[in-house]
């Protein structure tokens, strides 16, 4: 689990006193993350007119006045209005700027910055570093933009993480799907039980109830021997899914003349060799039907038979 997603999910103990991501961000993020860096500044000898043009061009409402990188003061839009009103618009800024303005340090948290905005009611703060050099300027809008930006990024990360989880889950599901398929030749008594054996192994590994395992194995085995004894050949497929086993036995003919009769216990058309080997009890199809949760058989003379059976899987009960 990565830390971002656990933060978003608010899992476990944090669930009780859940803190929103935005709340976390205002503590995590610093003024330097939100401020406008390398702000446009003016010098103490620049005229108020110069500031007025700067504001007009850049749509600023405040311009810091610096000398050698050190903050001397700030000229705001109110100062410019006053200057125009009172006729000192062509005088240097050092005469009319607000001196030693309140600043924020670049390492302050955003939560502290918000508190300072509330406390002073200013529209902006110059930001200085540890050696009192001007490094930026910050407005409430900058803080909002920064938070929105970071929230978006977290959301994107969460979506990406979710996508990865979904992909992993899909891969897991696919891995849990095992297909066992064998071609079966007519009269090949020695190969009987191949699919059934492999299937039993997978089901045992998955901790499936022995009774359920046995039923699935019997279906596969009887279906295999049916193809060996009665058909010119075919194919058997066992698909093991998380919740069930699906067995399809498809042969190439000759087909069952009377399916109802074939489903009757004791009725067999097996030849002498099969009978000698212990087959031909006339119980194959009835056994399959009895062991199946879903049982379908379609047969057409001259074309073949498709037997479809499903067994629902249950885990073995834990014995204390």
């Amino acid at each position: 689990m990565n830390p971002t997603s656990s933060l978003l999910a608010g899992s476990g103990t944090t669930e009780k006193r859940r803190i929103s991501v935005a709340q976390v961000l205002v503590y995590e993020l610093r003024v330097r993350d939100a401020m406008t860096k390398e702000p446009v500044t003016a010098g103490p000898t620049d005229t108020m007119r110069t500031i007025q043009h700067l504001m007009k061009t850049h749509r600023f409402s405040g311009v810091p006045i610096t000398q050698n990188g050190c903050l001397l003061g700030i000229v705001t839009i109110e100062d410019i209005i006053n200057a125009l009103d009172k006729g000192h618009i062509n005088e240097p800024t050092e005469r009319w700027m607000a001196r030693d303005p309140v600043t924020l340090r670049d390492h302050y948290s955003l939560v502290r910055a918000v508190a300072e905005f509330d406390r002073y009611g200013f529209g902006r703060f110059p930001v200085v570093d540890g050696s009192d050099k001007l490094v930026g300027i910050i407005t409430r809008g900058d803080i909002t933009d920064c938070l929105v930006h970071h929230l978006e990024r977290r959301a994107e990360e969460a979506v990406a993480h979710e996508a990865v989880l979904m992909a992993e889950r899909a891969a897991d599901e696919k891995a849990r799907r095992v297909v066992v398929r064998t071609q079966i030749k007519s009269g090949d008594f020695d190969s009987a039980g191949k699919v059934s054996q492999r299937m039993r192994q997978v089901l045992r590994e998955r901790g499936i109830d022995p009774d359920v395992r046995r039923r699935a194995a019997i279906i596969a085995y009887e279906a295999e021997t049916n193809i060996i004894i009665h058909t010119i050949g075919g194919q058997i497929t066992a698909t093991i899914l998380p919740d069930k086993v699906v067995i399809d036995a498809i042969d190439e003919g000759p087909g069952i003349e009377n399916v109802d009769l074939a489903l009757r216990e004791g009725w067999s058309t097996a030849g002498p060799l099969a009978r000698e080997l212990g087959f031909g009890a006339g119980m194959g199809l009835p056994n399959i039907k009895r062991c199946s949760d879903v049982f379908e058989i379609k047969s057409e003379m001259g074309r073949g038979t498709h037997l479809h059976a499903e067994v629902m899987l249950e885990k073995a009960r834990m014995v204390a």
């Binding site: 019997i218 009887e222 080997l277 119980m283």
Partner: peptide, 21 residues
């Protein structure tokens, strides 16, 4: 008969038969 055993033999029993396949 193999199918008969598949149908009716219970787990854990001794199976007596003449089959050797």
């Amino acid at each position: 008969l193999l199918s008969d055993v598949l149908a009716y033999a219970r787990p854990g029993v001794l199976w007596v038969t003449i089959q050797t396949h």
